[in-house]
């Protein structure tokens, strides 16, 4: 929510600014698309939202005074995604960050390794997580962001990044074991 506050955007930039933008920001288009795809769970929607975010980044580029261009861009992408979700899928945002108090079923490393080999199962499991947990996991495990970068992008205090990741991983483990056929049949 701070990405959009970085000064009033202008509709046009000059040629030098554009060259700087292409050099610093455009190389992170994959990161922008990947984050949008995992937040919105749809490639088609992500294409639209990533395009919009990129254009916003271009317009706010005067407010970017050096530093981590990827984190700066991802902050804008994330804000654009949440705005889009609020408008188009408000229900999804309601479940976020509800603290789970139930004891976690323990999972053996072996069963996880087997479950994890399946790209589709991992995707489905990740997509069952509330967006706030999904985003820290995607930023950490797929994008390789540091805690400091995750804090900057997601606007959560750096001190809580570690616990957000811990809870996200526990939820993901649970989603994976619940999705396994043995677990499913046992529950039925």
């Amino acid at each position: 929510m701070s990405g959009s506050d970085q000064g009033r955007g202008s509709d046009v930039l000059d040629v030098q600014e554009r060259a700087r933008f292409e050099q610093l920001v455009l190389p992170h288009l994959d990161a922008a698309f990947n984050l949008a795809r995992w937040l919105l769970k749809s490639r088609a929607d992500s294409e639209d939202v990533a395009q919009e975010a990129m254009l916003r980044a271009f317009r706010f580029f005067r407010g970017f005074h050096g530093g981590d261009a990827r984190a700066w861009l991802l902050q804008i992408v994330r804000n654009t995604c949440y705005t889009w979700l609020e408008k188009n899928r408000p229900v999804e945002l309601m479940t976020e960050f509800d603290e789970e108090m139930h004891p976690q079923p323990s999972v053996s490393p072996e069963s996880l390794a087997i479950a994890g080999d399946n790209r589709e199962r991992l995707t489905r499991a990740l997509e069952t997580l509330p967006p706030r947990f999904r985003e820290v996991l995607v930023l950490r495990e797929l994008e390789g962001c540091s805690y400091k970068e995750i804090a900057a992008i997601t606007a959560i205090p750096i001190g809580t990044v570690m616990s957000a990741l811990a809870r996200g991983r526990q939820r993901l483990q649970r989603a994976l074991t619940h999705a396994s056929p043995q677990e499913a049949s046992r529950e039925l």
Partner: peptide, 17 residues
Amino acid sequence: EALRSSLQSSGLYEHAP
């Protein structure tokens, strides 16, 4: 650690079309 290596080796990263 097993979960991490699964996440990172399963081609989950989506590149911009």
